[in-house]
Amino acid sequence: MYLQTQQAVKAIVLLLFSGFIFMLHHTGEITKFINPQYTAFSQIASVIFLLLFFIQVPRIFISREQAEDHDYCTILGCNHEMGDKRKVSLKTGVVYSIILLPLVTGLLFPYKELGAAEAVKRGICYTPIQKHSSHSEVLETSNKTLDEMVRSPVLILDNFNFLDYVNNIITYPELFNEKPIELEGFILMDDTLSHHPLLGRFLVTHCVADAHVTGLLLSNDDENLRNINGWVKVNGQIKRLETNGIEIPIIQVKEWKQIDQPEAPYIYP
């Protein structure tokens, strides 16, 4: 009976991957990494890892007969660690430490939600996008939210309507002039783009790596607002601001208060 160390390490790694992904789903922390719409994929991955673990376990030990018999090598792969099984080469050590790295950082480090500091490094979009779509069906559905928005006396933005509402406000600023608005987000200052602070939210389409910011500009009458590093709730009125010939909406802030970062900081379109 021989112990194959490498096969044993592989089995442990497979099970740790399965356990790690399972744990993320179990605690709900998976939403800090990927859009909940796609969680089924990684759940399946977790189960597959467990299956591969069970496949791997019998390879940890091989009997004396198996060690000498190379008949099955053609099909099962000939990786008998017979020659220098006591010696673990440097290369193997490096390879396994690379593979273990995400497990170590994933299990030990706290997870951080992206905030204003990361947002500045990514593209921010607050100018209108020209629509050259002639799809009547699409226009109807967007008109439905648009109608709803025009008719409601005050626009209250939440996690579900944030993207649609912000897109509509940016595309048709003239429809919402003087409209009261209420929304939450983090404050972002990017002097290369504008001298106004931006109230933004991260959109996570697939995973956090493709997160990008969308939001609305705030009027900067209140100097304190600029220096906030965190989340705020803002009440105000939509005004129009003309810069470089483009009309962009801006929120005239009436009152604001600092709030804690919400449980679900990302928006999943």
Binding site: K32, P110, Y111, K112, A209
Partner: peptide
């Protein structure tokens, strides 16, 4: 903080890619 942000992005790329790699 930036190292923690790095770790989060790193793990999210992995978690996203692993089902397809499997």
């Amino acid at each position: 903080e930036s190292l923690l942000a790095f770790n989060t992005i790193f793990l999210s790329i992995l978690i996203e890619a692993i089902p397809f790699v499997l």
